[in-house]
Lab assay of single mutants.
Amino acid sequence: SADYSSLTVVQLKDLLTKRNLSVGGLKNELVQRLIKDDEESKGE
């Protein structure tokens, strides 16, 4: 998976916004949300 932890919070929020995901929470939560979304989209 992508190394989201190396991105800035601003970059993470931009990715979340593009996916229509919540941008609330700490950086670690944003990273986990993106990883979870990646895993769910692979399952389709």
Rank of each mutant, 00 (worst) to 15 (best):
Q32E: 13
L30N: 01
D3A: 06
T8H: 05
V9N: 06
K27D: 04
E29R: 03
L12K: 00
E39N: 11
E44K: 15
V9R: 04
S6Y: 08
Y4D: 02
V31A: 05
K36E: 11
L7F: 04
K13W: 03
L30E: 01
L16H: 01
N20L: 06
Q11W: 00
L30Q: 03
V23M: 07
Q32N: 11
Y4E: 02
N20D: 07
N28S: 14
L26C: 12
G43N: 13
N20M: 07
S6T: 09
T8L: 05
G24S: 15
L16F: 00
E40N: 13
E29M: 05
G25R: 00
G25Q: 02
T17W: 06
L16W: 00
E40C: 15
Q11P: 00
K36M: 11
D14M: 07
K13F: 01
Q11E: 14
K36R: 13
G43E: 11
S22H: 11
I35S: 06
V23S: 10
K13D: 03
V9D: 09
S6D: 14
R19C: 04
K36P: 01
V31N: 01
D37H: 13
K13M: 10
E29F: 00
R19H: 03
S1Y: 14
D14P: 00
L15D: 04
Y4R: 01
L16C: 13
I35Q: 09
K13T: 08
L7E: 03
L26Q: 12
D14K: 09
A2L: 14
S22P: 15
L15H: 04
E29T: 07
G24F: 06
A2D: 12
K27A: 06
G43C: 14
K27W: 09
D3C: 13
Y4C: 03
V9I: 13
L21D: 02
N20T: 04
L7W: 04
A2Q: 13
E29S: 05
I35G: 03
K42F: 10
S22Y: 06
K27G: 04
K13E: 08
D38S: 05
T17S: 14
S5T: 12
Q32R: 10
L21N: 02
L21C: 05
D3Q: 08
S41R: 15
G43M: 13
L34S: 00
K13R: 12
T17Y: 07
L7Q: 06
S22F: 06
N28T: 11
S1F: 13
T8K: 04
E40T: 12
S1I: 13
E29N: 05
D14E: 13
L21S: 01
L26P: 12
L34K: 01
K13G: 04
T17Q: 14
I35K: 09
K42G: 11
D3V: 06
I35D: 04
V31P: 02
L34D: 01
L26Y: 07
S1G: 12
E44H: 14
K13Q: 12
E44N: 13
E40P: 06
Y4I: 03
K27M: 07
S6A: 10
V23N: 09
D14R: 08
G25P: 02
D38C: 05
Q32A: 14
